[in-house]
Design a protein around this nucleic acid. Structure first.
Lengths: 166, 166, 166, 166
DNA sequence: TTTT
DNA sequence: TTTT
C-alpha cells in the first residue's frame, strides 16, 4: 500500500542502458550504500542495491552517471522472481526509481576543483524526476521479467512491450 | 550512506520469534505490499518484503502482530548473501526495521466494531520504536548470518552473540 | 533537490474541498501525528501537520476521509509565506501530498466490526496515488498563495489558474 | 505515529551552535531545497527548511557544515508554536534530524580538486547518525521552547535542561 | 561480481 | 533574511 525508499550511495560500475523490443529505455545500476556501523574488523560494510530506471530517466542516468559517483535514488522496493537455468526460483530485489539525483558533477578532465560552483551545470546534466502520464499506470502489464535485467549479457532484455509495469 | 525505507502492508503469516545463542530476540515476518498499479489481468500484485526486528522491538512485534494485520515498518534495506546446500551464493534482501506501527488493533473476541476509539489501547499494545544504546552500534559484529533467518526450521538461528549487527 | 515526507496520523477534522477559479480541486486537511516520546506530564504530544492535495487525489480525499481517520500521507514539505492583514510575513508549512492511504475503512453505519476483511473494499474506497501528466509539471506557475489555504473562510481560495504549481 | 523526512539541499548560511543552560549542544541551520519544477518565470524556487540537531550530532554539524554545502538530513517534522512579543501565536516548523550526511568534502585550503578520493576523510569529518540511549527518550521533557531557536540573538537559548525532548 |  |  505504501512503499518508499531513499538511498544515497556510489555506483559500483557504469550504468547499463538497454531497450525493450518495443524501444523503451531501461537503465540499471547498483549503488554501494555504506552501513551505519563498522564490523568486528573495524571495516564499514556496504549493501549493494540494484536500481532500475525507465524511459527518460533511464536515458538521463545512462548519460550522466559513472562508476564511483555519489548518487541519491528514490523509488519503491520491488521483489521479482524468475526461474534460473536449473528450474530454481531466484528472488531479485531492486529499487524501481522515479527520482535520481546526481550529487557529483561530471568532474571530467578540466573540471577538477571547482565543484562548488557548477551546480547549475550539474542540474542541466540530468537530475531528473520521473513524471508524466503513465508512470505508475496500469493498462495491461505484467511486471515479471523472464530473466534478470541485472544479468547483463549483451542481448536486448527479454521483455515484451506489454510487460512494462508503466 | 543513507538508506531509509517506509512500508505499509499486511503480514503474510504470524511473525516468528527466535533467539540467538546469547539470548537476543529476533523476530521476522513478511509484509505483502500492494503495488500501485494493476497488471494485465486487472489484478493488483504485491511485493512480499521480509522484515527483521531485534531485541525489545522483536518481542513487541511477536506479541502484537498477527497474520493479516495492516502494519507500517520503517528501517534500512539490507542485502545479505549466504551459500546454500549446493554451494551457491543466494542473495537475501530484508528490511532491518527500527520502527513498527500496528495499524490495526487486536480486535480479538469482544472487540469488534469500535475500532475508531481504541487508539490509545492500540498504542499500549505495542507500537514501538527501536531506541537506546546500541541500536546501530558497532563493537564487534559480523552482519552475515550463516543461514537465512527467514528459512524457518524450528531450530535456534545460527548466529553467535558476536554476530549481531547491533 | 530531494524532499520526501511520509506521515501516519489522524485527521483533526473533516477535510475541506475547494476549487480554484479555474476549477481545479484542492483538498486540505490536518494530520495529528503523535510524537515518539511522552512529555514531562507523561502525555504524548502531537504535531499537527497540514496536508494539501490537488485534482483527482483532492476529490478522493474529500470523499473518503473523515475526522479521526487513521491516514498515511506521502509528499514533499513546502514552506510558503504570505503577508497577513497587518503586513507581516507569515510562514506556512504544509505537505503537498502525491499519495494518500486510507488506513481505516468508512465504518459508517452498518460496517462496524469487520474491519479485518474489507481490505479490497477499502482500496476501492479511494486509496489513490497522484499520477499522470503534469504532477510536478512546470509551465507557468507561481506557488505562492495570496492567502493561507488552511484559513478556511468559506470563500473560494484566492488563487488564479496560473498560480497552480502543477 | 510515523513521521519521516529526508531532504537534500544546501546550507543557506553557516550553522549555529548553542548550548542549553545545562550544557546540551544544539545546532540549527537551514537547507535550501530546490523544488522539482520551475515557475512561470522559468526559475527554480526553493523551500528553506529549518533543521535542528542535538548533542553529538550538533557538534559534528557545527564543525563540518558550512554555507553552501550540499547536505542530506533525515528526521521528523516538528511543528512548534510560541508567543511573539505581541502575544501572537507563531508557528514554526523544523526537522529534528537524527542523521545528517555531508555530501561535499571540506574543499578548504589545499583540498581542491580531488573530491573523488577523499571519501574516507569525508566520513571521518563527521557524517553522523544520532544514536544511543535517549535519542527519543521520554523521561520528563517539554518540547515547547519559549522562543524560536532559529531567531539567533547571540544569547544562550532559552530552554532548561528539563525541556529537552531527548 | 562490487563503490569511496 | 536565504543555497547553487
Amino acid at each position: 500500500m505504501l512503499n518508499r525508499v531513499v538511498l544515497i550511495g556510489r555506483l559500483t560500475r557504469d550504468p547499463e542502458l538497454r531497450y525493450t523490443p518495443n524501444g523503451v529505455a531501461v537503465t540499471t545500476f547498483t549503488l554501494a550504500v555504506d552501513r551505519p556501523y563498522t564490523n568486528q574488523q573495524g571495516q564499514r560494510e556496504a549493501d549493494f542495491i540494484n536500481i532500475v530506471t525507465w524511459r527518460g530517466l533511464a536515458e538521463t542516468c545512462a548519460n550522466y552517471l559513472k562508476k564511483g559517483r555519489l548518487t541519491a535514488a528514490e523509488g519503491r522496493l520491488q521483489i521479482r522472481n524468475y526461474e534460473n537455468n536449473e528450474g530454481r526460483k531466484v528472488y531479485v530485489s531492486e529499487i524501481v526509481a522515479d527520482n535520481v539525483r546526481f550529487l557529483e558533477s561530471t568532474q571530467g578532465q578540466g573540471n577538477q576543483g571547482n565543484y562548488g560552483n557548477d551546480y547549475q551545470g550539474n542540474d542541466q546534466q540530468g537530475n531528473y524526476q520521473q513524471q508524466g502520464q503513465g508512470q505508475y499506470q496500469s493498462q495491461g502489464q505484467k511486471s515479471n521479467f523472464n530473466d534478470d535485467p541485472f544479468a547483463s549479457d549483451g542481448k536486448p532484455i527479454d521483455i515484451s512491450d506489454d510487460d512494462l509495469p508503466f
